[in-house]
Design a binder for these strands. Structure first.
Lengths: 127, 127
DNA sequence: CCGCATCCCTTTGGATACTG
DNA sequence: CAGTATCCAAAGGGATGCGG
């Protein structure tokens, strides 16, 4: 039985912001796109181990709706789709950087990302 | 029936950070404590409309475990408990500030917090 | 006064199979 | 290639009532 989504609480800007990039895969997708600039769907999925299509597609949809990513469809043979960050999307990267820096100070046990696909977090400390 | 928590994924610093203050009430609690410095449990609850004891207590426990808040118990008559931010907790406030600023730019529909208890978000723009 | 126990509902994330 | 459909599991959040 389908149940319509309940009216969301009115949220302050802070909570709005956390909604945008606070999801389980969202920050990771933003990081990857920030580093690689433009990626096809299948390549993007390859960069994120263990994510399934259902989840990746749903997450990209949200990011698209929130204006974080840009989606370009190529109706060639074979067809493909490319994703990249919008300006809005790019503007969150410094915030993710600062979170990563902060966490690096306190999260001693695992300062280096141990997930290969998460080496993209290195983006935050590079340069 | 009690079910043990599954082993958490290994997370990069960024995701660790989002875990700390990304929960539904966490940022709000941090904001309130950042402004009021020290609050009794009951007063803190009063500052957050609609939160229930079960949720507030659980959230405070997490923040305590993560070293964000400090808990001082007074075994007087009547007994009470006071919560305040640790140094680690205080150090996340600038990050919340930057998120709030960023969101203010893009979240035009609701730039001003419309929840009274969330006027604490003004903390981020004050001064 | 503070906060836990219990039970329940909603939301989110995921596995598998399948399609334009 | 780039997803959707379906079904399901787990976690988060919440209401109520009790206990130190």
């Amino acid at each position: 039985m389908y149940k319509p989504k309940l009216e969301k609480d009115i949220r302050c800007p802070l909570e709005y912001g956390l909604e945008i990039f606070g999801g389980k895969w969202k920050s990771r997708i933003i990081c990857v796109l920030a580093e690689k600039k433009t990626l096809r769907y299948s390549v993007l999925r390859g960069e994120m181990s263990n994510i399934t299509d259902a989840v990746l597609a749903a997450t990209l949809k949200e990011l698209l709706a929130d204006g974080i990513v840009f989606r370009q469809q190529f109706n060639e043979i074979p067809p493909h789709v490319e994703y990249s960050l919008t300006d809005k999307g790019k503007s969150v990267v410094p915030i993710l950087q600062s979170i990563c820096q902060w966490a690096g100070i306190y999260h001693h046990e695992n300062t280096e990302c141990s997930l290969p696909q998460c080496q993209k977090c290195d983006y935050h400390s590079k340069k």
